[in-house]
Design a protein around this nucleic acid. Structure first.
Lengths: 254, 254
DNA sequence: AACCGACGGTTCATCCAGTGAACCAATGTA
DNA sequence: TACATTGGTTCACTGGATGAACCGTCGGTT
């Protein structure tokens, strides 16, 4: 790989992100690069305003808000967001529950938008949360629209259980994906966090490829089985609208 | 500055972020670095999963979601978020209007969280939005708690008007900052976008330094002058609670 | 008190990775 | 047709990146 110093710098950056207030030796071990080099990277990234020394603990390094600001103008993210916000807003008002907009990132679903419920009891997924695909309705929905090789590869990997209800059996997950395809929406009952049920639908981008997903989430006491169909169909309608806006069904532009 | 290839890479990354589907020559000009070098950076960043070729337009480069995922675990962001979400939630329920959580980034306020109003008529700031400080209630609130040199520098810079109501006169802005200090909250009437009024309060971090701000926003037809005081005081109370949790008033830990 | 290990941070000779001018083919446009 | 711009490639040169060995400090053990 070329430009190895850049590679090192980015790896350091990701290591900082993963270990938040991260120490020098710690990072050096993590990235497997001499301390001197890591420190030089941190200094450079610091000058650029991407990391800084934690004011709470000297010698510990943290990410800055600037890093977030630069990266939040993500490509597909903003395209999808633009297309999704209107319909998503309507969906939230219709259902009165929290709706999420998620895009894929390396086996995770990344929450990039949220419109929340007026209910006192509300679910909180901070913006930027990464949810394992197999443990979230957005993830299963995304997988239901993704191409086979991707699904095979994902299901072959290690699947961690986040709650006692998390489904980690590949065969069972495959069945859930098939159900999602036929039904039009995925259902996740407390597989991500206890007491939360969620219903997801995939979004399609240009050429009909999976681009992300949306979901309706709330306490399992409110999102009861009797409501699955109503919410599922509402979400599916919204997703269709967004996918259409993304150009999923128009002739591919050459 | 050391490790110049890293500097170049990050500058390329930021240039991509700013110009979204960005072409090679375009970036080369922007960063003032030969095309060959820019291309090498793009390839390296591509291998790392931070940028990719736009599938819509070949040869154009865009940021990936992965970049967003890494950077969204921002330091101060998450610390503040953890401290703020509880009180903010209560504030939203009390006022029934949209509340925002914002942190500073190079002259802008970065919206990192939002709790939505149940009202059909609602304002949308996408999460990750960057608002000029002088044109937002969060910005003026932040400036009212920031140190003098920072304020001087900011007001000396170019101040763009986003709407006909945006205040861009430094003297007038300074008066607004003073008012904010004495009153306890800032008011922005349609300075950010027409038809939207917003009330902001600064958050203080360790040592009492400005760390961010919160705001209550809504259509100017609902957030009328008669409500300013009620909302302002509610927000100020919430901000105080958050600042306390951030350790603004405890003895500095040595 | 003396010892130890781990911490953040520094130094500097070696050498290889990054640089950028010049190049290509393709497309657009006047 | 000619000209300008695009994305992308090549390669000799050299100066910037590397990493082993170093320093001072801190906190816990014995």
């Amino acid at each position: 790989m070329s430009t190895q110093s850049v590679v090192t710098a980015i790896r350091v950056l990701e290591a900082v992100s993963d270990n938040q207030p991260a120490g020098l030796s710690e990072l050096s071990r993590e990235v497997d690069v001499p301390k001197a080099t890591v420190l030089r990277m941190l200094r450079t990234l610091g000058e650029l305003g991407w990391v800084s020394q934690s004011e709470a603990q000297a010698g510990k390094w943290v990410l800055t808000n600037h890093a977030f600001a630069v990266a939040s103008r993500g490509s597909s993210g903003s395209v999808i967001r633009d297309a999704a916000m209107g319909p998503l807003n309507a969906l939230q008002l219709d259902t009165t529950e929290t709706v999420h907009l998620a895009v894929p990132d390396r086996g995770y679903m990344l929450i990039i938008e949220r419109l929340d419920t007026p209910h006192v009891l509300r679910a909180f997924l901070p913006l930027g949360s990464r949810l394992p695909m197999h443990a979230s309705s957005t993830g299963i929905a995304y997988l239901s629209a993704a191409d086979e090789p991707f699904v095979d590869e994902y299901l072959a990997g290690p699947l961690e259980a986040l709650t006692p209800q998390t489904v980690v059996d590949p065969a069972q997950l495959r069945a859930m994906i098939v159900d999602t395809r036929t039904r039009g929406y995925s259902i996740n009952e407390q597989g991500l966090s206890t007491g939360i049920t969620s219903i997801g639908v995939p979004l399609l981008g240009v050429g009909g490829v999976a681009a992300g997903s949306i979901s309706i989430s709330g306490p399992s006491s409110r999102i009861v089985p009797a409501k699955y169909q109503e919410y599922g169909e509402a979400a599916a309608g919204t997703a269709l609208e967004i996918s259409r806006a993304l150009g999923a069904f128009s002739a591919k532009a050459y």
